[in-house]
Amino acid sequence: VPCISSGLPKPTNITFLSINMKNILQWNPPEGLHGAEITYTVQYFIYGQKKWLNKSECRNISRTYCDLSVETSDYEHQYYAKVKAIWGMNCSKWAETGRFYPFLETQIGPPEVALTTDEKSISIVLTAPEKWKKNPEESSISMQQIYSNLKYNVSIYNTKSNRMWSQCVTNHTLVLSWLEPDTVYCVLVESLVPGPPRLARPSEKQCVSTLKDQTSELKVK
């Protein structure tokens, strides 16, 4: 039964949260209706096409997010989405997003970071993040395949000297040389793509220790 578009306030702050092409529409409940049993209905639109489309799994839902990854998976297209609040027989007007361009707006997740140490060096191997996929069985697509100009900003922190430095690399292996033996170094890596400003999503900080200096060990003996 269609609801009556009344003075019910609209949902607020409707935006796409997009990471590696997983595109979640999210919003805040309408203001001033705490405690009311509000439900929501979502529609989406492909820029340049003709009509708004329903997302059946997001009809009369009580949560304040909706996964539109499948519907917005052609990342060369641009999209709009909208949501309205429903309370009993009454519903709000639609609250609409701006134009969403996944190719330019998705946040690029951090790479996988593997560290191996030596006395005076640390080898870093980076694996590009994977694009979101509908089913785990689907073959994986690396974000590198989508963004050929994907780079990494590697930050290194010497916990003994408190010194920190960064390097921007394009390939997937990096050897940090001339380090101090028997010292803990922490590494943090962020994926970068030239183009519009994007929110960064750095990797977890990983700390490893360089090995003890074998030559000084022998002298001691």
Binding site: F45, Y47, G48, Q49, K50, K51, Q78, Y80, G98, R99, P194, G195, P196, P197
Partner: peptide, 28 residues
Amino acid sequence: LQELWEAFWDMKDVVQAQDNITNVRLLR
């Protein structure tokens, strides 16, 4: 090119919000 991106991104929301004919895309 980064400067062009930043220039466009500064005005993207204002400019695109003025375009209500969303069923037409020029650069198809």
